[in-house]
Amino acid sequence: MRRAQPNFFLPFNRRGIDPFTERFQVTLRLEGTVRGTGGLRLLGLDCSTNVPGLYAAGDNATREPICGGFTGGGSHNAAWAISTGCFAGNAAADFAAVRATQPPSPVRRLGKAGFSKAGTVVDNEAAIKAVQAEVFPLDINYFRTESALTASLERLDTLWQRLESSGGVSDVALLALRQTAAMTATARWMYNAALARTETRGMHRRDDFPKQDQAQHHRLIVSGLANIAVRSEPVQAASFREAAE
């Protein structure tokens, strides 16, 4: 155990606790998101996304190709991180090598939230707490129902509108604001998808739809920031069959 899981023993060693013979306090923690299941949609095993030159790896890349609607947990997560890191790194290097020979093309900014020092200053700590108040409660995020999800989403949408015009007073404040905006966007994507999936499947459980629905054996693709769209995509996994085996 100690050889295979040195990280597990670290807190015990530092507190002088023998976990095999002594009792210790345990705290339950809900991580908020459905762990490691969703993420940026990959177009193929080179880990490309639909943004040219953007490759996703590890927790940022959806793990559905190897885990379906469930968490990767432990070994799958580690294997996914190492594999996609290699694939994405190789593909990004190839992309950069080709781009280096081409003239630079203009880029434009699509994001708004927390990008400008001229924007309205918002209380970042309060904004983080507001998102946590929507994703931590088990009655919203674990025992999911249409009414609770809809009410939560309205509050999150209001928060997003405030964040869209927000700005920071320093680079450090802007970075913190961007992270809060990412948390808010993720929470809104989660609950839009959760509302669209009117069944219980994998780690997603709907108290108002407690059974699995064969007709919903598809993936949900969520997109957009100000206006979020959800569409379904059949599970054919042509480009991922190799990864799933």
Binding site: R3, A4, P6, N7, F9, L10, N13, R14
Partner: peptide, 25 residues
């Protein structure tokens, strides 16, 4: 003696580099 104790436990220190290969899990 807590400074560096984690690095030593996982073999990221010169004195304990043999620990990098003990996990045959």
């Amino acid at each position: 003696r807590l400074f560096g104790s984690y690095r030593q436990a996982i073999g990221w220190a010169k004195e304990t580099r043999h620990l990098r290969h003990v996990d045959d899990h």
